[in-house]
């Protein structure tokens, strides 16, 4: 049975993780120290692994025979449903870790709530994602304290990252009709209800890191409807090139 709302919702969850996983993987071989190189590659693999499972579930909900590969590699930019925050270029190490912290803190409260989803498959996936998110928050939150409360330069870079990223956080908490319909059925979570617990967590870490939250008049949006920044197309071009040039190629 085709479940268009569930398909759309799973795509959003999956695309956030697939795109961010790809972004974080760009650090592989380039991180400041070997240990952090492996740590970031681990996080990237966690996220891509989550995306793989979510896309498989999304393909099943769509009911048109598309598997995770078809959804990841043969969809165009306009059909991607990720929030804008995950597609921004990786920036410097401070930017990457700040985004990771803001995103992972969101993933933590989201997956915690989704564990009791009436869609038992999604509930099970949320349980696995929650475990991984706990480590991502611990790792990236720890780095927030180090770079925010480190040297003058590291502090400046961390604060610049918070200033740049903050306007992209609002999109994570914008619920729409699809989500509200699913929330009413106990399948999804109304994103707007996640902002308060997320904010408490983020404020605590930023405060201890000596960082301040900028006042932002307009929260960027559009990713959930397929309106993306200029950066996603480039990312997809790189990620999809193999399947586009050699359709059906396997490892």
């Amino acid at each position: 049975m085709s479940q268009p709302d569930v398909f759309e919702y799973l795509l959003r969850l999956a695309d956030d993780r697939l795109v961010l996983g790809h972004r974080v993987s760009e650090w592989c071989g380039h991180a400041p120290i070997l240990e952090e190189d492996i740590a970031l590659a681990n996080i990237a693999l966690d996220l891509i692994g989550q995306a793989n499972l979510l896309l498989t579930a999304a393909g099943a909900a769509e009911g048109k025979g598309r598997d995770a590969d078809a959804l990841a590699f043969l969809r165009d930019e306009l059909d991607y449903r990720n929030a804008l925050i995950v597609e921004l270029p990786k920036g410097d190490f401070g930017f990457t870790l700040t985004r990771q912290f803001l995103f992972s803190a969101h993933a933590l409260v989201l997956t915690d709530a989704l564990r009791s989803s009436k869609n038992t498959e999604l509930g099970g996936l949320a349980d696995k994602m929650h475990k991984e998110s706990r480590y991502h928050v611990r790792h990236s939150g720890d780095w927030m304290l180090r770079i925010g409360d480190g040297t003058e330069e590291s502090h400046q870079r961390a604060q610049a990252a918070v200033n740049e990223l903050w306007r992209y956080t609002g999109e994570l908490f914008m619920a729409d009709d699809i989500e509200r319909r699913l929330a009413a059925q106990g399948i999804a979570v109304d994103s707007s209800k996640l902002e308060t617990p997320w904010r408490a967590q983020v404020d605590d870490v930023l405060k201890r890191a000596g960082l301040t939250v900028p006042s932002v008049a307009w929260m960027q949006r559009g990713g959930r409807q397929g309106r993306h920044t200029e950066h996603l197309g480039h990312l997809l071009a790189e990620m999809q090139t193999l399947q586009r040039q050699h359709p059906g190629a396997s490892w």
Binding site: I33, L34, E35, E36, I38, Y135, H139
Partner: peptide, 20 residues
């Protein structure tokens, strides 16, 4: 062995490098 600035970072680095 791992490089780290303090114990918590050493623990995380050890987890990432040796407990995957």
């Amino acid at each position: 062995s791992v490089h780290a600035a303090d114990a918590e970072q050493a623990l995380q680095n050890a987890r990432d490098v040796y407990a995957r």
